[in-house]
Amino acid sequence: MQRIHINSAIQSYDILIAKGIRLQIADFLSENYSSVLIITDSNVGKLYVQDYLNALKGKKVYVEIIDAGEHSKNIETFYSLQTKAIECGLDRKSLIIALGGGVVGDLAGFVAATFMRGIDYIQAPTSILAHDSSVGGKVAINHEKGKNLIGSFYPPILVLYDTETFETLPQKEIRSGYAELIKEALLSDNQLFKELVSKELDRISTNDLAVFIEKGIAIKAKIVEFDEKESGIRKYLNLGHTLGHALETKLGYGVITHGEAIAIGLLFSMYVSEQEFNVDLPYKILFDWLKTNRYPMSIETTMVEDLIELMKYDKKNVQNQIQMVLLRDINEPILHTIEDGKVRNYLSLFVNRVKREVM
Rank of each mutant, 00 (worst) to 15 (best):
L53E: 10
L243W: 03
E260D: 07
S176F: 04
N317A: 11
L347V: 13
M303K: 15
K93W: 04
H71F: 07
H5K: 13
E180G: 09
A210W: 02
G58K: 09
K215N: 10
T257M: 10
R203G: 04
A185N: 06
T40N: 00
G341A: 11
N74A: 07
G177I: 09
K342I: 14
F78W: 15
G89A: 02
I219K: 04
E225W: 01
G101L: 05
Y283P: 03
I213K: 01
A18N: 11
I96C: 03
I299F: 10
V139N: 06
L201P: 08
I6H: 03
R22G: 13
I6K: 08
S188M: 02
E144W: 05
E76Q: 14
A113S: 15
V36W: 02
I223C: 02
I17R: 09
S298W: 02
A185K: 01
M116Q: 15
Q82W: 06
T242L: 01
T206G: 13
I21R: 01
Y154L: 02
E167Q: 14
S152L: 05
E167P: 00
V325R: 10
R175H: 08
I96K: 00
G341S: 13
K93T: 07
A124M: 05
A261C: 06
E195A: 14
R353A: 09
D208N: 12
L90I: 02
T126S: 13
V111T: 05
L251A: 09
L310W: 11
I338C: 11
F212C: 05
D27P: 00
I128E: 04
L81G: 01
K183L: 13
D314L: 09
S127I: 10
E276T: 09
L349G: 12
D67P: 05
I322H: 12
I17L: 04
T168Y: 09
S273V: 09
I96F: 01
A218P: 01
